[in-house]
Amino acid sequence: MDLDALGACLTTPACVVTQTTSGLIVGMLLFLVAAGVTLIFGVLKIVNFAHGTFYMLGGYVAYTVLGVTDSYTLAVLAGALAMAVFGVLFERALISRVYNSDVLMQLLICYAVVLIFDDVVKIVWGPEFHAMGMPAAFQVPPFFIAGGVVPPFYAVLIGIAALIAIILGLGLSLTRFGKTVRAAAINPQMVSALGINTTLLFAIVFAIGGGLAGMAGALAAPVRSLSPGMGFSILIESFIVTVIGGMGSILGALVAALLIGMVRGFGTIGFPQFTDGLIYIMMIAILLLRPQGLFGRAS
């Protein structure tokens, strides 16, 4: 524990800017993955343990598309689109068969998919890690705000993730489709009784969740190593985000992801040996005070 260093950082504009940027990028990428987890749980009550696989495959698809097209934009779009399609196939072929089954059965199916696609990645891309490399447009020096370092690439990623958060939030609250999704989250039988095609609705929810995770994997690929099993590490934090924010709440996922990002950003200065511990303590504290999470609906 180094509270002096933390105090010094919090009173230094350069440190505040640098660590806040660091917290924002960690938090926003986490949000993109966790938003899918919470959306799927909110509507379908499915805890999608295979969500990290979408993130991993999104990164690998983007890596391949970048190699072919040399366009990072196309690579990100391809990663998101491929995982949206994969999400629909996953829901239709597997998850739709266990909606009414025991949660253990759902868990087993998700875990099987994780293991199968880890091996598929090994076969297709090899067991060793890959690095996409920074797109040429972002191979520029960082800019400085009040002496703090802000990398242009991260600024763009934060902007994209924030835009998606806004679109997702407004889409769910203002559009007819969003209202249907929210209604299905509360009472799917009634939504079905009103003549709404819930089969299609559920597939679309998986497409959105998969697409967001795929996009996060693709967006992060230039700076993170791609390796089989990489989805697992982000999955754990995504579930923490979902639990802290409240299962099913997109706003909760955003706030929780940013909280975790900031704990990482500043915790590493003040509690370098205990940053992960801080996150779990925060989760326990929130669950004790609000068992349904920050923005979750009390049962």
Partner: peptide, 18 residues
């Protein structure tokens, strides 16, 4: 001391810079 296989080193890098 980042974790083995940690996907994001951002907070480590910024700490080192600070």
């Amino acid at each position: 001391w980042p974790k083995l296989g940690q996907p994001d080193f951002t907070e480590v890098i910024t700490k080192l810079i600070q």
